[in-house]
Every structure is written in structure tokens, then in C-alpha cells.
Design a protein around this nucleic acid. Structure first.
Lengths: 195, 195
DNA sequence: GACGTTCCATACCGATCGGTATAGAACGGC
DNA sequence: GCCGTTCTATACCGATCGGTATGGAACGTC
């Protein structure tokens, strides 16, 4: 039924993801995308809807391929391991030499034009969702006696997310993986638990 | 000698600064600028050169008005006070209710289009300059016995900068001043010195 | 009051933005 | 071989991008 498409939609989406990752949502033009993906504009619009929908698909792929560790880290037995695994996982995702440095989500989380407000809103929601999930996990840890009674789960979750966001900026600006590993070792000294 | 300009260049620059701060370099169009500043395009180009030069002037003003505390904090007597004053100063600048949330520099430090590469390079240089100055200050502190002999000044400086960059993202995404104050109190537990 | 100078208002520039209409090429089903 | 369908190629759309040419209005100087 009909002419088969001459490109692999999955490969094309991966390419779009890497372009958005490296250049941001607004910094990536349709021409950048079609050139990189090796397809024409009607193919892009026919397959992915429009630029915003394409970005959302790329974001979903990014979360699935590069941020999935976050949700499994939540299942670690104690709060300190949860926190450390999350930070290590983020750093790995942000400093793979075969991928753009930094984090697609953080890159899209700061200033943006009026035209990109909807995308920005989605990004902020995603961050809040993760931060809330981490807060819930730390609340559980506190109930389980895993975190001290005087600790504040919300503050601890915000701290971990903040360090992650800071490392994303550092990675975008050229910091290496080993340096950032030392950084999170240092940051973990603020976290309650085995000193 | 000639007709006097009908607007205050300083006010106009302040408005441009706030627009760039809120919407980013690429997200702010010339029309956004002229509308906000209440001037016409020839006036903008006659007074400020072009968009890139205007941004650089706005950046200089930003550093002067909102980041000057950084350089005076370096003169505090001990490393811990230096670090704490820097973090507090950043949070104050990023969470003033009369100004856009977040940090102009961090907003411009992540992903960007090819067209903005020069701006991005300048921003990264600025961050590196500050980070290096902080490293030098911590090296001095180590020599003075103010930091432990086994501490790594470069890592400590990177840590402070990373927390600052993370708080900028948090502020951009709506975190309040008090929450971020608690955050940096927590972060300072990783820093060598009194408890 | 004419003059050179500077600024402002309008209209315009080529290029690019995101997005689409049209037409032809490549397939499966009959 | 013909048909309906789905893809691709090209050309095009209005809007906006950053930036400028032109012409008149407002000044200080003489």
C-alpha cells in the first residue's frame, strides 16, 4: 500500500535528537534538521508533524535512551546510593564522547523566546516531575530510618537536581568526565550518610 | 552640534539587558528590543552598533551591576567565607523579584545555534575566567593553611561554580529565594572548614 | 537665517524562518 | 496494466530575521 519511505525514521529521529541536543530547540532550524537527516521538508512534516512535535519525540527518545537510569536508581536500597547513582548516571549521559556534551533538558530549561514557551513549559514540568519523584523517595528513606529524622527530603532532592544541572552546564562548557566525577564525589559529602 | 537624542541610552541599555536576561540572546529579536526600549531601529543601530555589540554592552552592564560581588568576595579573609559569600551573592542576583529569574550568563552558556557561536565563546570565557580566579584564591588559601593540605583548589572552585550554575537553573524554573538559601547551606557542608 | 551635523521615521533590503501546495515517482492489490 | 495510495522533489507561501538607505526634523554655530 503506497510507496515505501526511503529513509529510516528511527535513524532520522536520532539525528534530530543530536541536533537539538547540540544546538537547542530554537537554535536548530528546519534546514539544519532536513540537511542532517538527509530528507526533504515534506518528508519531515509528513513523518513527524512539525518542529515542535519532532522535538517532543526527540525528547521522549532522549529520556528513554539517556535518562532511564534515573528511575531505576530510585529503586536502590538506600538514599545515599540513590543519590550517588543518579549523579553518576547524569554525568555519564552528559559526557559521552560520541554525543553532544551537556544535557538536552537543561539546555532547554533556561531562557527562551516567546515562540518556545510551550516547549519550555514541558521541560520545566519534566524536571519538576523528576524532582518530586526523588523527594518522595527520600521521604520514604526518612520513614525507613535511612535518612536522619532531622533531614529535609525536599531540600535533599533539590540539592541533587541542582548539582546535576550544574554539571550539565560544566559539561557543555568543556569539563571532562573525570573532573566531574571528582565534583560529584565532593558534592556527596553534603549528603547524609556514611561520611 | 546636531539634534540631541530623544531617549536615555542608559535606560535603553538596561531594558535591553532585561530582555536578553529573560529571553536569551537568540530569543530576543531586534523588534523585541526596539519595542521594549521605545526606540526605532536606526536609533538602536546608531547608538549600539548591532545586536551582538548591544549584547556585549548588556553583558558588561550585567557583570558590573549584578556580578561585581564576586570579585569583592574573593577578598574575604578565609576560603569558606569566600565560597559562601559568592554563593549567597549569586542567589541574591538570581532571585530578585524586580528582575528576571536566573542568570544571564548561565542562560547563554548552554546550547546555541551556529549564528551565536561567538557570543557563546565569550560567555564560556567569562565563566572560565571567574573559575580560574576562584581557583587561584583557593590555592592561596591552601598555602595560608586556610584550606587543608589534601584539598584540591581547582575541584573546590569547580564545585562552587557548579552549584551556582545549578541554582541559576533552579531559579529560572521558579524556585524561591529561601529554598535556594537552604540549598547553598546544604552545599557548603561539602566545603572544608568549620563543620 | 543659512549651515553642517545629528537624530528620528519610514520604507525597504536580501536572507531565512516554519510550513505547504503541486506534481511526479514508486509501490501493493486487482 | 491500471488504480489508489504513499512517498519524494521542487517550488512556493507569508512572516520575520538582522540590518540599512533615504529624507525630513531638531539642534548649535556663525
Amino acid at each position: 500500500m503506497g510507496r515505501p519511505r526511503e529513509f529510516d525514521a528511527d535513524d532520522a529521529l536520532q539525528t534530530a535528537l543530536e541536533l537539538f541536543w547540540r544546538k537547542g530547540y530554537e537554535g536548530t532550524s528546519i534546514t539544519d534538521l532536513t540537511d542532517g537527516m538527509g530528507i526533504t521538508k515534506p518528508s519531515l512534516y509528513g513523518t513527524f508533524g512539525n518542529k515542535e512535535e519532532l522535538f517532543r519525540m526527540a525528547l521522549a527518545r532522549y529520556e528513554q535512551n539517556y535518562l532511564a537510569f534515573f528511575w531505576s536508581a530510585l529503586e536502590q536500597p538506600d538514599a545515599r546510593t540513590v543519590a550517588f547513582d543518579i549523579l553518576r548516571g547524569f554525568v555519564e549521559a552528559q559526557t559521552q564522547s560520541c554525543n553532544p556534551a551537556g544535557c538536552l533538558v537543561v539546555n532547554a530549561a533556561t531562557a527562551c523566546s516567546d515562540a518556545a514557551l510551550e516547549i519550555h513549559k514541558t521541560i520545566v514540568e519534566r524536571i519538576q516531575t523528576a524532582q518530586k519523584a526523588l523527594t518522595r523517595r527520600f521521604e520514604r528513606a526518612k520513614r525507613e530510618g535511612d535518612l536522619p529524622a532531622d533531614s529535609n527530603p525536599e531540600d535533599l532532592a533539590r540539592f541533587i537536581m541542582t548539582v546535576q544541572q550544574g554539571t550539565a552546564v560544566q559539561a557543555s562548557n568543556g569539563a571532562g568526565r573525570e573532573e566531574i566525577y571528582r565534583l560529584i564525589d565532593l558534592a556527596m559529602k553534603s549528603f547524609p550518610g556514611q561520611n
